[in-house]
């Protein structure tokens, strides 16, 4: 393997990592605040990808149809998420973990089948949007512009999200609820509203991830399960509930998978799990997380 190949592998690993970051950070945020491990999070991502496909094919006459769908699909997904939270998830807070797992698992089945009903079982593709449909050629390296766009958008979202939580009033309310729900409630914070808001934000991020993935891979049933497991690996490595952890975890995961394929193609998926097992055993709260209080 020459140097060019390694650089390409590095870049593609990072672009995969950055898309999964968007999904994993939503999962982590929701877990941190709501204390619910939302198994259906990847299904929300799949819904985002389908909606992106649907909207951009509806608007195929309009120029920049992808950019419109990139704007609208995550918003629709967030609204759907809000609907789910108010209607269903709200009923199971404080219940046993098993109930939460099963409810969100039921949502995987329902969302998966609804997508099949709406868009069929065949593959769908979304064209790479202008002006990102060309490749960048740099010193003999050929690399798609779209992947560069993905690599750049990951850190952008990360910084935005981190500042939102760290510096805004909204962020401090969310942190207060995460830290001590009862106390925040006693101080007049509308906790259910914060829960709905955080859940919608998480869904928006997943939807954004889905919409961004649509031009670079086929939109089809089953795309959710693969990503779900990847997200688990990432949030465990980084620490459940930590935004920076999800970012770090995604980078590590993207690179380990990209280079793992070079070393042992058949066992590449196992590397992620091995990493997850090692982190869980040595430092269960993850690289950036805090030990349970």
């Amino acid at each position: 393997m020459n140097l060019q190949g390694l650089v390409i592998q590095l870049l593609s690993g990072m672009s995969v990592g950055m898309v999964i970051f968007l999904i994993a950070v939503g999962l982590s945020l929701i877990f941190g605040t709501l204390q619910v491990l939302n198994l259906a999070h990847a299904s929300i991502y799949m819904l985002g990808a389908y909606l992106c496909f649907w909207i951009s094919s509806m608007l195929s006459q309009v120029s920049g149809s992808f950019w419109w769908s990139l704007l609208m699909a995550p918003l629709l997904v967030a609204m759907f998420g809000g609907f789910l939270e108010v209607l269903l998830l709200r009923r199971i807070y404080g219940r046993e973990m098993l109930d939460q797992f099963l409810l969100t698992f039921a949502l995987i089945l329902i969302i998966g089948d609804l997508c099949k009903l709406a868009w069929g079982v065949e593959y769908h593709t979304v064209d790479t949007p202008w002006p990102l449909d060309k490749a960048i050629i740099f010193g003999g390296l050929v690399f798609p512009r779209y992947n560069v766009f993905l690599i750049l958008s990951g850190p952008l979202i990360y910084v935005g999200l981190w500042s939102l939580i760290r510096y805004t009033r909204l962020g401090s309310v969310v942190r207060a609820v995460t830290y001590n729900r009862e106390m925040a409630n006693a101080l007049g914070v509308n906790v259910p509203l914060v829960y709905t808001g955080v859940f919608m934000l998480g869904c928006w991020l997943a939807g954004l991830g889905g919409a961004l993935v649509a031009p670079m891979s086929a939109v089809m049933p089953g795309m959710d399960m693969v990503v779900l497991i990847d997200c688990f690996i990432i949030v465990v490595i980084g620490g459940l509930g930590s935004i920076s952890g999800a970012f770090l975890g995604s980078m590590i995961f993207g690179l380990v998978t990209a280079f793992g394929i070079l070393v042992a193609p058949r066992l590449a998926i196992a590397f992620g799990f091995i990493l997850m097992i090692v982190v869980l055993i040595i430092r269960p709260w993850g690289l950036m997380g805090k030990p349970e209080r």
Binding site: L102, L107, L109, I110, D113
Partner: peptide
């Protein structure tokens, strides 16, 4: 799966 999901809920 859709039916199963509804049953679980």
């Amino acid at each position: 799966p859709l039916a199963l999901g509804l049953v679980i809920i």
